[in-house]
Simulated assay, not measured.
Amino acid sequence: MRINRALRLGVGAIALTLAAATATACGGGDSKSALDHAKDGKLTIGIKFDQPGLGLRNKDGSYSGFDVEVAKYVAGKLGVKPEGITWKESPSPQRETLIENGQVDMIVASYSINDNRKQKVDFAGPYYVAGQSFLVRADNTDISGPESLKGKKVCSVKGSTPAQNIEKNFKDTQLQANDTYSVCLEGLRAGSWDAVTTDDIILAGYASQSTGAFKVVGKPFTTENYGIGLKKGDKEFRDKVNDAIEAMFADGSWKKAFDSTVGGSGYQAPEPPKVNRY
């Protein structure tokens, strides 16, 4: 009986140890702050893996895009070299959870700053001001902006803000809502619809990968402030990230990063925004 009890106690101890190790591996057992991680020369940064020009995981396992370049610059200013960065995929619906659970130190993933999100996380930035625009085939001359949408077929993603905007404000337009932008692009290439709509910088990224098949048209007609998502309440870390963003604007690295990524579509870099130190 004593042997069985000892075995049970031993198994229980092993199980607890494994559970603790699992929690640590998932980020839940790490009590260090993002600034502590940076001081150790390591950061876990959330990005998109499927947005060409912004955040893309390439076939060789490397990562590229404007968001990636912004993240690397900011990390560098915090003392973290590129090899010290762990990239983590951050789908839109999971971003707040990843930050709150400590699974990432920051998120740089076309992450619009809004009041609802600020209840759960903090933001540094903005580092870019995006706006809804249109992607059309390169030979299209019919669409130049929202004023020329009447009777046109326009594709966006189900439930997205751009899709809702078209549905609400452009009732003479035929909205085609799909699950992903890749489906929208396939249909645009095939001529199934006339345009794809979402934020201008996302469209510019797709255009830069299209080898001249698509172009972005029209001035942005909405406003989306892209910020770097951070753990709520960590003012010291947010201030340092804001310092890094401002330095990137000032030394020309921001424009260089834009031109080398989404700028490949021919889309011109706007003036950098003013950082909001709320």
Rank of each mutant, 00 (worst) to 15 (best):
N4S: 11
L7T: 15
V11T: 12
A15I: 14
L16V: 15
T17Q: 04
T22R: 09
T22W: 12
T22Y: 12
T24D: 06
A25I: 06
C26H: 12
G29H: 09
S31G: 15
S33Q: 11
S33G: 15
L35S: 14
D36G: 10
D36S: 13
H37A: 15
G46P: 08
P52D: 03
K59M: 12
G61R: 02
K77H: 07
K77I: 00
L78G: 06
G79C: 07
I85P: 10
S92F: 10
Q94R: 14
Q94I: 03
N101P: 03
D105V: 05
I107K: 13
R117Y: 06
Y128Q: 09
G131W: 08
S133C: 09
A138C: 05
S144C: 02
G151C: 03
K158V: 13
T161P: 07
E167W: 04
E167K: 11
E167T: 04
N169I: 09
T173M: 06
Q174D: 08
Q174N: 10
R189C: 01
G191M: 00
W193P: 01
D194S: 00
A195L: 01
I201T: 13
S208Y: 03
T211F: 05
A213K: 13
F214E: 05
T222R: 03
Y226A: 11
L230C: 06
D234A: 06
K235M: 07
E236A: 15
E236R: 04
R238L: 09
D239H: 04
A247E: 15
M248Q: 11
W254Y: 04
F258E: 01
S260F: 01
G266S: 04
Y267V: 11
Y267F: 11
E271H: 05
P273D: 10
